[in-house]
């Protein structure tokens, strides 16, 4: 009996184990369910039928504003941010071969945070439109610093992560310093940014973030085979004809390309990058090509669910999604850890 689904075409071939296929379908369904529920729930309960009607009918119904202007762009932002951070974490964990690696730990997020908090406490007068620009620049500078400082006849995963921790600590120090000396008003804004929130996202934000993902996601998938080989170790990968050094630079760049824009628009949402890949690994096989879509969808679902909880559970308070990402992700992850005790 075949245990996998095999596709052989002229453009290539791949096989998917049935168990992984089942898991992928399940994850997709969960994600779609979260999306649908998110559009229905909120300050006003909108029946699923009415949500559908808003999308389909020509004339704008009474719920059109809430669904199309307030809920949908926010939902899409949550999904994109979650997916991008999750995949960024997956790429880093594969490259560094350390389960603790994630954009938050290696310094990409903290670079963005330091820049964002600098902006909020010193340059907020320029207008909030500059915030994402500062954040992306901060992430890029941090990543570049990490790579340059870790370079010594090439980079090794261990050196990369140690330098990453160092840079991350320095950036974190700058952030703390700025918050500690700034006024209550600024420190609260900064704190919310550091928690991560997709509050107030509009179509403008969606249009700004989507292109980044349209480039970075397919690019990641294209590299799947090489990432698989690289995970086997430097020697094996080199033996398979892969330039390990070049691949590492590309992967680091890719993880920045994924994480930086997401963080820039939603703040330093933590934990998704760390946990989504682990959850995915426990549900589907270790092959990167399958792990990636699973990770992306889990990350998206996590952030969407977190935002749904944040804006509905304590109404009328609207709590940043970042609070609930780990509040729902961690228990689920602990359950997975508990179930597989061997």
């Amino acid at each position: 009996m075949a245990k996998q689904w095999v596709v052989r075409q002229r453009w290539g071939s791949f096989s998917v184990p049935y168990q992984a296929l089942l898991a992928l379908i399940l994850i997709t369904m969960v994600m779609l369910l979260v999306m649908w529920v998110s559009l229905c729930l909120g300050d006003t309960l909108i029946m699923p039928r009415d949500v559908l009607a808003t999308f389909l009918s020509e004339s704008s119904s009474e719920f059109a504003f809430v669904v199309e202007v307030l809920r949908l762009p926010r939902l899409l932002m949550a999904a994109m941010v979650g997916a991008a951070l999750a995949v960024s974490g997956l790429v880093l964990q594969s490259m560094i071969r350390n389960p603790l690696a994630s954009p938050d730990i290696i310094g990409i997020t903290s670079g963005a945070s330091a820049a964002a908090v600098t902006f909020l406490s010193l340059f907020a007068g320029l207008g909030m439109g500059w915030l994402p620009v500062f954040a992306i620049a901060g992430a890029l500078v941090a990543a570049l610093a990490i790579y340059v400082l870790a370079w010594r006849n090439g980079v090794t995963p261990m050196r990369l992560i140690l330098v990453g921790i160092g840079v991350s600590a320095a950036m974190g120090a700058v952030t703390t310093l700025l918050i500690a000396v700034s006024s209550t008003a600024t420190s609260i804004t900064a704190y919310i940014w550091l928690t991560g929130s997709v509050y107030g996202s509009d179509w403008h934000d969606v249009r700004a973030l989507a292109p980044w993902l349209l480039v970075s996601m397919p690019l990641t998938l294209c590299l799947a085979r090489r990432i698989n080989a690289q995970e086997l170790g430097d020697q094996l990968a080199t033996g398979l004809g892969i330039s390990v050094q070049r691949l590492r630079l590309v992967l680091l760049g890719l993880s920045v390309l994924l994480a930086a824009p997401a963080v820039a628009y939603a703040g330093a949402v933590g934990f998704v990058g760390l946990i989504a890949p682990h959850i995915a690994r426990r549900l589907v096989t270790r092959s990167f090509g399958l792990l990636m879509p699973a990770t992306a969808m889990i990350g998206a679902s996590l952030v969407m669910l977190a935002d749904l909880i944040g804006r509905t559970l304590f109404q009328p308070l609207d709590i940043p999604a970042g609070v609930f990402v780990s509040a729902i992700g961690a228990p689920f992850f602990i359950f997975l850890l508990y179930r597989q005790r061997f």
Binding site: L274, H278, V323, A327, A330, F333
Partner: peptide, 25 residues
Amino acid sequence: LAGAAISALFMSFTQGLLVIGQEGL
């Protein structure tokens, strides 16, 4: 892994409390 998960869990509780009772921060 367990440490990262538990830390994140507690951290998110803290963030929640601080964001709701903002003066407390």
